[in-house]
Write a protein that binds this DNA or RNA. Structure first.
Length: 424
DNA sequence: TCTGGGGTCCTAGGACCC
DNA sequence: TCTGGGGTCCTAGGACCC
């Protein structure tokens, strides 16, 4: 049996831990730039606010009633780690799936004891971190997701639900579950399934796996096996090195100024370089992209990306910045109002595979060591003194890319000076 | 005025080879 | 009139996740 442990309304719950006055109120947390709603309390859901709804399109009555907060990722990331550490008390097999969800392995435990363990887990996480969680047990990940959904929605489960592959509870749940509520089935696939008369999770489970593979995809076939209780989805080791690293942001306001684009790219490259070195990788290609605001249909639209290969794999921010600048020059066009730029590091390899090449005559061992020391020092200073304590090049004033986040709460768990702002 | 950011996996189709 | 077939590799884009 495997358990999916999911934090309820995670970002909102984090905010409530440090500001209990938010209990009972409709609370929402906004995306970067305060653009749209990415987390909702039950009260806000009850007002009809949908996931991903644009802030500026919310009816004024709702904006007056609701407490809408900028996102505070320093806080959520830290709280997430506390939850994960608590889960490790219950099983040696914890796979962190996202900031608010983990799969926890319970192989070998007596199935009859699982619900009680689940309840104890909930209470412990609540007591140690202040975060409410729901627990779904099942033989496969897809079914564990269904069980978790039931644990959250159906009050008799009291936050913990166990589903067997066969059994009346499983059957009843799958019969009334729209197929698009399943993990891995979204709108597009749902539309195609509807055409052949499959609307519920149960109907999908009863479909022929091989035929569905041919008509749809291997992904859908695996979901069918999982619904029947046969594991077909393995999770990647979430601690494994990423295969690509992306950093991008929307601008706080649109801009046509190439200097502002260059500055944003430089920022993003610096962050991407940090991430790259933290996981001990090198990159051999840097992708740069720019785009206008796709929602402004009356404005001229432009989106373009380019991949710039590096002469040799590198993790030195200066190399990455050089490549990114060339990429930006190649795709920048005058006359457009840009909304977003970003960089992606592709083709990552472990830096232990650092290869000797013919180019080594051009870059001596001494140069490489200097580069490594410089980057290690920059990373250390930024870790200890705060992001951007040290950077390559000077920042500009009044940047277009400065984020709007006017409603952010204090970073209670990671900044002493902000902790003092709590009103008692 | 204002619509997130960061990932993964899979598939189709083109280029190329023999 | 007739113009192979099968394999690999790569890339772009779709779909999905939270």
């Amino acid at each position: 049996m495997i358990a999916l442990v999911d934090c309820n309304n995670f970002y909102v719950s984090c905010e409530r831990v440090f500001n209990p006055r938010l209990e009972g109120l409709p609370v929402g947390v906004l995306s970067n730039n305060d653009g749209c709603v990415v987390a909702r309390s039950n009260e806000l859901k009850a007002l009809g606010v949908k996931m991903g709804e644009a802030m500026h399109l919310l009816p004024p009555t709702i904006r007056r009633q609701a407490v809408l907060l900028s996102s505070n990722y320093a806080l959520y990331g830290d709280m997430s780690q506390r939850v994960t550490r608590t889960l490790a008390e219950f099983s040696p097999h914890v796979e962190v799936y996202s900031i608010d969800e983990s799969f926890v392995g319970f192989q070998g435990f007596d199935p009859a004891t699982l619900e009680a363990r689940g309840q104890r887990l909930r209470q412990t996480v609540q007591q140690w971190t202040g975060i409410p969680v729901s627990v779904g047990f099942a033989p496969t990940r897809v079914l564990a997701k269904v069980a978790n959904h039931a644990a959250k929605k159906i009050s008799v489960y009291e936050g913990v639900c166990r589903l067997d592959a066969e059994g009346p509870a499983t059957r009843a749940l799958l019969r009334q579950l729209p197929v698009t509520e399943l993990w891995g089935v979204a709108r597009r696939t749902g539309e195609r399934l509807a055409l052949i008369g499959i609307d519920t999770a149960w109907q999908l489970r009863e479909a022929d796996p091989k035929r569905m593979r041919r008509a749809f995809s291997v992904v859908l076939e695996r979901i069918i096996w999982e619904l029947r209780g046969r594991p077909a989805i393995e999770l990647d080791d979430m601690t494994a090195a990423k295969q690509q690293i992306m950093v991008s942001r929307s601008f706080g306001r649109l801009t046509s100024d190439p200097a502002e684009l260059r500055e944003a790219i430089r920022q993003h490259v610096a962050r991407a370089g940090e991430k790259l070195r933290r996981q001990g990788s090198m990159t051999s290609a840097v992708m740069v992209f720019v785009r206008t605001n796709p929602f402004q249909l009356d404005q001229p639209q432009y989106r373009k990306s380019v991949v710039v290969p590096l002469a040799r794999p590198s993790d030195d921010t200066r190399d990455l910045a050089h490549a990114a600048n060339r990429g930006l020059e190649a795709i920048f066009l005058k006359g457009y109002r840009y909304q977003k730029v970003g960089v992606m590091l592709l083709d990552l390899t472990a830096d232990t595979h650092r290869q000797l090449s013919l180019d080594d005559t051009l870059q001596s061992e001494a140069d490489r060591q200097r580069s490594q020391r410089l980057m290690a020092t920059v990373d250390k200073l930024n870790r200890e003194l705060g992001r951007d304590a040290v950077r390559l090049g000077l920042p500009r004033k009044n940047n277009a890319w400065a984020l709007r986040c006017e409603r952010r709460t204090p970073r209670y768990t990671t900044r002493w000076e902000e902790l003092l702002r709590i009103k008692l």
